[in-house]
């Protein structure tokens, strides 16, 4: 088995490796290089050193605003999505009637694509806000909370399923033992139930974290027109495509530098996540 595997190793690996090189590694390296240049097209670039990185923080005011907004959005989303999803999961594991139906209902929003969701919610929210003479697209605080609502609506069902699976893994006898030991239901929740679903909590936290941090489609469709409610990914996109004219090459360079910083942030999150889940697995 091992021998055969060794013999055909190149046959299986080369295509994947080639695809990986062409579609990921080479563009990645080129992207890093381009962040130190001003360019109109990929082969018409001019080296400018770290000027782009400086411009992000001096010339372009949108980046820090977006970064702060993204962090706020991510924290609010993680808390609200996980708390609500866990609460619903607790309710729906209570052997009540109709739980199967509600599980399906809560999961459904997850099946709809982000762009579509964004447009639907923009219609709904603006429809309601219209009575009060406001518009989500241009009011940053409504825009922010609208995005939170949309994200919750989409992600809660998915997280709920993960929590339900985690909760169902707790043997009924454990809860009974806690009751006999004298634990109140609230105490059981905090001393028994939550510690026992910690693996699910970790998974859900990181799923919401990465999904919120990298959010793009929903942001674009719901309130993409306003600079004040652009999250990081959308801000980068806009830096590239919302500028025309003479300074285009400069904006391209700045956008590229932003993308590299974005990559570093996501990489740090991914790394922390990897370490966290690894440690959990060892503990298990």
């Amino acid at each position: 088995m091992h021998k055969t595997l060794k013999k055909y190793f190149p046959v299986f690996v080369v295509p994947v490796l080639a695809a990986f090189l062409v579609s990921f590694l080479i563009p990645f390296v080129m992207g890093i290089y381009l962040s130190f240049t001003e360019f109109r097209t990929v082969d018409a670039s001019e080296w400018v050193g770290i000027k782009n990185y400086i411009s992000i923080f001096t010339q372009d005011k949108t980046f820090l605003n977006s970064l702060w907004l993204t962090v706020k959005f991510t924290v609010v989303s993680i808390l609200s999505i996980n708390i609500i999803a866990f609460s619903i999961a607790l309710l729906l594991t209570r052997k009540l009637r109709g739980t199967d139906f509600f599980r399906t209902v809560f999961f459904m929003p997850n099946l709809i694509g982000g762009i579509v969701l964004g447009h639907i919610w923009s219609l709904i929210i603006n429809g309601i806000l219209g009575f009060f003479g406001v518009d989500i697209t241009y009011d940053p605080s409504y825009g922010f909370w609208g995005l939170v609502v949309l994200m919750n609506w989409q992600m809660i069902g998915y997280m709920m399923i993960i929590y339900i699976a985690g909760l169902q893994n707790i043997p009924e006898h454990i809860n009974e033992a806690a009751a006999i030991d004298g634990a109140s239901p609230l105490r059981t929740l905090f001393s028994i139930t939550i510690p026992m679903v910690m693996p699910s909590v970790t998974i859900c936290t990181f799923l919401t974290l990465t999904n919120s941090f990298k959010l793009f489609d929903q942001n674009l469709a719901l309130n993409g027109k306003s600079a004040e409610t652009s999250l990081l990914a959308l801000d980068i996109y806009k830096t590239f495509y919302d500028h025309t004219g003479l300074r285009l090459a400069e904006w391209h360079g700045i956008g590229q530098a932003k993308a590299v910083i974005f990559f570093l942030l996501v990489a740090v999150i991914a790394f922390v996540q990897l370490r966290a889940t690894e440690r959990k697995e060892i503990e298990q």
Partner: peptide, 27 residues
Amino acid sequence: PKDRDIAMVFQSYALYPHMSVYKNMAF
């Protein structure tokens, strides 16, 4: 159950898996 002052040993042990033996007994 918690107000009946009884102790029970379950067939499936029903130990708290996330607690040490000591904490299981001390809970």
